[in-house]
Design a protein around this nucleic acid. Structure first.
Lengths: 151, 151
DNA sequence: TGCATATATGCATTTCTACACATATAATAT
DNA sequence: ATATTATATGTGTAGAAATGCATATATGCA
């Protein structure tokens, strides 16, 4: 892998950056709650389930999920209109230990409580309903969908 | 500790913020290298030893050390003009696991190599010489000290 | 007392980050 | 086909963070 000193330097910086990105990704309340929720759930979760559980606007959840995926912490699986995210444990022991660590964090249990409720409306283990708390579709609009047809 | 639901909410947010700050603190290359170096060293290190080992300007090291201390990851001990920093393991298993995790990171070993050299000039286990790489005192100046007396 | 040295910090600048609004994209349902 | 729905993203903005310079603070020493 590393042919010479220069390559080692580059490789070292590359690896260091990867680890830095992981910690940076966890250094935000919403993203930490996302990972924490996934470690508690023990299974993949759908975007709308994150939204209803964490009570954050849909566009925020989507963006944070993307960052976590880019940091290598999540994988996504598309199923029709639904997108499920799960913990990405590829690549050695590091992430496994990290996820155990995040799981051990003792925060208030409201997120988990709301997730449990939300998971209750799955059918055959699959997500079949979108965001239930319509005020989370956007922040101001209260769930109003803008029509495409105009004038 | 938590008398009612409102207190629990506040407490939960407080704790979540504390964990977030920890991860955020590690989400910077220099700070991650500082913690990594400390986990490898297994003992307290002096500011000038960080500077020579990580080859970052003194003012940057000072600032990053401060942030790590404010995040609860470091403690400092003053000994005359010298200030030693060590890992702060207070407060349950979380930080212990975290430090083990950081220790397990495999990055290039230049930092550790330079630290080993630098520790060679300690006397009776104590730091007795300041920054050896004078170009790290500031970035541009090359170690020039400005006189106080003027005009 | 005055200078040297180890560390910390005020300030300005630039870059990043998170958020909110609106809207796009893609798949489903009618 | 067209409307609906689940998710993603372009854009503007405000606040945070990293950096570099200069200098302050504090301790030790001559």
């Amino acid at each position: 892998m590393c042919r010479n000193a220069y390559m080692q330097l580059l490789w070292g910086e590359f690896v260091m950056k990867a680890y830095t990105e992981v910690f940076k990704a966890l250094g935000d309340p919403t993203r930490l709650r996302i990972i924490h929720l996934l470690t508690l759930a023990g299974k993949e979760l759908c975007v709308c389930e994150f939204v209803d559980s964490l009570e954050e606007p849909q566009y925020n959840i989507s963006r944070h999920l993307k960052e976590l995926r880019q940091a290598g912490l999540l994988t996504e699986r598309k199923e029709g209109r639904w997108v499920y995210y799960s913990l990405n444990k590829d690549g050695g022991n590091f992430k496994d230990s990290l996820f155990k660590l995040v799981r051990s964090i003792s925060v208030d249990k409201e997120d988990a409580k709301r997730l449990k409720e939300r998971l209750g409306i799955r059918v055959k283990g699959e997500c079949v309903l979108g965001i239930q708390k319509s005020y989370l579709l956007s922040k101001k609009g209260g769930g109003v969908r803008v029509k495409k047809t105009m004038s």
